[in-house]
Design a protein around this nucleic acid. Structure first.
Lengths: 331, 331
DNA sequence: TTGAAAGCGCTAACAA
DNA sequence: TTGTTAGCGCTTTCAA
């Protein structure tokens, strides 16, 4: 059986309250006593029971992380970041995968909310109302979107798209296709806006081909429509979609970047390994997770900080140029 | 503030213990009372406080999952499986990523073990002794290896390798290279043995090229040595390595499968997307996670079941033939 | 600076 | 079948 605070107290010759104080408010206890307690703790290998502590403090020392799909490399990276940073703060992470089912989300968060101090929520598709309802239950930090005044870590999608378009226009492309992700996705919306602004500013034109699943299959499905637009370059919702495009274009014998340049978003590991290697807007995925944790913990310590949280700067993407983009074909 | 068991008791006009019983041992309480309790629970949206319950039962309703790298698609899938099955049992999952650092593992598990009922441990490289030490602290289920009599979910690596070799030999290959993973990895060991047995049985020969990191980079690094063996086919430790091989072979202008056939292990999503698409031994990754959870929970319910657990059948892989393997070149 | 006492929310004897 | 009582391990008043 693990040692309890009473065992430590007995061994150190003090009361349990003193042990408790020595551990959590060291300043309030005499240095000599503190040393005796420390020795006893060491000797017994004592670790405070978190459940018992939580019962009294109301804090569990645990946060939740809800993602649509752990097998999606983007979310895997975010999870990695969350998990690493949480550990630094000695906070445990409950992970829940919604299997891309936004309906499951609310229930999941509700169940989770009883057991955690707060939740990092990656929920690209939930409506603002749903998110607001969830935020009633527990402290929430959104990732990859911002909604209804909830604190969140976001990307400057507009700037990322501007970089992509600037690159393509410099290569001589004038007509750029855009394969959007799910219609309800916050990123689809903002990337679309960013592209429209960028093409306008650079006197190019945009050819949106609609909304597709944010997957390899989505890219396969979109490819023929992209070709039909007559565009010489295409920006895909994310790398998975871009890699799907690459596959279908290859099987149709359309050369990339010879006839069509392809640009993705995310820079997942797979993108470097694609053939041709994918030009993409790299998003700081792990950093996103780390910041989300910092923000959440700050919020828990001081709910008033929500104001500051609201005004967080979005993270910037960085264009990574690889082989899938090249000069526009001469007509 | 959330409703407590006393609130429910008051509303239902019974004692807290009755509420407790109605919830956890319904059989022991009168149907009518049970209904009143249920109504009160419903009305107040009552959810038992798990920390308080855990304090008394000694069970936290939480399990830990330790993996080397969440960004590795193999472990991401296992995690997905663990997480899905745990939820079904209303058990929460703490996830910890060791960042491929076996040294960090023991400490991590120790820290975790105070907060969970048991741990699913993916630890390809830890020594048997380390694992045994960890198992002192808490109930452990190993994934992807078995060691020191600890219960674990394993693969029949020998059979997987037999399938791969049978396929290659049928295509006319006689000399098959083998790119091993980390030297201390359980899978490296068993896949190596399986390959040796299989080539012997089929009168082919094996050309091992040594141990490499289980990554894309590892594959890139191994490629030239593979070519130097003069083999017409190569089996890689896993798909990541195989994809690295593909990349380097491509840049050296060596045609796959024309001059060299490549086979991986795992069947991660990326493999289908590789070019040429990768022939591989598909491992049931999510199933692995699910079984690990079932086994762990069974063990927790009845530690004696460890006997049964020890005799678990290994999971079988299944050869998926894609474009990266073809007939051996004619000399 | 320290200790005694109370109690967080729940379950598990033990009685009734 | 139900209620009473005690207590899980900890923190936090309150007094000393």
């Amino acid at each position: 059986m693990a040692a309890t605070i009473r065992d430590v107290a007995r061994l150190a010759g003090v009361s349990p309250s003193t042990v408790s104080r020595a551990l959590s408010v060291p300043g309030m206890v005499n240095a000599a006593t503190r040393a005796r307690v420390a020795a006893a703790v060491e000797q017994l290998g004592y670790e405070p029971n978190r459940a018992a502590r939580g019962l009294i403090t109301g804090r569990t020392g645990t946060i939740g992380l809800v993602v649509p799909d752990l097998a999606n490399p983007f979310f895997a990276s975010v999870t990695k970041g969350v998990q690493a940073r949480a550990r630094r703060h000695d906070v445990a992470v409950f992970v829940a995968d919604t299997d891309e089912d936004p309906a499951a989300e609310a229930g999941l968060v509700r169940a989770l909310s009883k057991q955690v101090d707060g939740v990092v929520l990656c929920s690209p598709r939930a409506s603002d109302d749903e998110l607001a309802a969830i935020a009633q239950d527990t402290t929430v930090v959104l990732v990859n979107r911002n909604a209804a005044g909830l604190p969140g870590i976001t990307y400057d999608n507009e700037d990322g798209m501007r970089q992509a378009v600037a690159h393509l226009v410099a290569l001589g492309h004038r007509r750029i296709a855009w394969v959007g992700g799910p219609a309800t996705s916050w990123s689809t919306l903002h990337r679309g806006v960013g592209l429209r602004n960028a093409v306008e500013a650079l006197h190019a034109e945009l050819a949106p081909v609609g909304n597709f699943a944010p997957t390899y299959e989505g890219g396969m499905a979109a490819a023929d429509q992209v070709v039909a637009t007559g565009a010489t370059a295409v920006v895909a919702y994310n790398d998975l979609v871009a890699i799907g495009l690459l596959a279908r274009l290859h099987s149709r014998g359309i050369s990339v970047p010879g006839e069509l340049s392809v640009v993705g978003v995310d820079d997942i590991a797979m993108s470097r390994m694609a053939r041709p290697a994918l030009t993409t807007v790299r998003l700081p995925k792990q950093e996103t997770g780390r910041l989300a944790v910092e923000l959440l913990l700050a919020l828990l310590d001081d709910p008033e900080a929500a104001q500051i949280a609201g005004s967080q700067e979005p993270l910037h993407g960085e264009l990574i140029v690889r082989e899938s983009s090249g000069p526009a074909p001469q007509k």
